[in-house]
């Protein structure tokens, strides 16, 4: 069973549809026992950083997630805002601290003359591919992005898997660091290549 975390933000049904299409069982939940018994966790996200963190706090999910991810080393995939929440902090609608699992900061994209939000289908650059997370993904694949904030400074060396995207400047599109997986575009909304990444995560 896969737990899709319900923190009252996010397109949870879209994520559930994608996982079921792949033939896996999942449930949308914020129940401690369900999360603890699950095989892996997905932290989805359509929302602002500030609201995301305060909802995780309100629903007492931070402790549960810390235990699963940091102590039990359970696999977790953060999608879009879910990925950003795993980082140190963000300055979307004021400065807020995140879960702090990933040593990155989330900042507004300097898109130069391009319009924000960065919304639509964009190509990715595959830079590191040491595990199966980005299996069968290549540079011509397009993913659906919808965001104005991103992770722009990252150290390549401790990541096993990395893809980036460019919109005025480069930023992280997906990473893997041990049991922590993060993806900025919406794989549940990126057709075959998106479903492939979700499948890779589950089977990794």
């Amino acid at each position: 069973m896969i737990s899709i975390i319900d923190y009252e933000l996010g397109n949870t049904l879209s994520v559930k549809n994608a996982i079921e299409k792949l033939g896996y069982k999942c449930e949308i939940t914020n129940n401690k026992i369900n999360i603890s018994n699950s095989h892996c966790i997905i932290l989805p996200g359509v929302g602002s950083f500030n609201k995301g963190i305060s909802n995780l706090k309100k629903l007492k999910l931070i402790e549960i997630l810390n235990e699963e991810v940091l102590i039990k080393k359970k696999k977790i995939l953060g999608i879009c805002l879910g990925f950003q929440l795993m980082c140190e902090n963000s300055n979307e609608f004021g400065f807020n601290e995140g879960l702090g699992w990933l040593n990155f900061e989330v900042k507004k994209i300097d898109s130069k003359n391009l319009r924000l939000p960065h919304v639509g289908w964009n190509k990715i650059n595959l830079l590191k591919n040491e595990t199966n997370f980005l299996n069968k993904i290549n540079n011509n694949n397009m993913f659906y992005f919808n965001h104005s904030y991103a992770i722009k400074n990252y150290k390549k060396n401790n990541l096993s898997d990395l893809m980036t995207c460019s919109y005025g400047e480069d930023f992280v599109a997906a990473i893997k660091l041990d049991n922590i997986f993060g993806i900025q575009p919406h794989p549940e909304k990126s057709q075959k290549q998106g479903l492939q990444i979700i499948k890779n995560f589950i089977e990794c």
């Binding site: 933000l9 359509v46 929302g47 602002s48 500030n50 609201k51 805002l81 979307e92 609608f93 939000p117 919304v119 919808n146 965001h147 104005s148």
Partner: peptide, 9 residues
């Protein structure tokens, strides 16, 4: 709505 769901939504 933007403060809650992000302006991209």
């Amino acid at each position: 709505a933007a403060k809650e769901f992000g302006s991209q939504c």
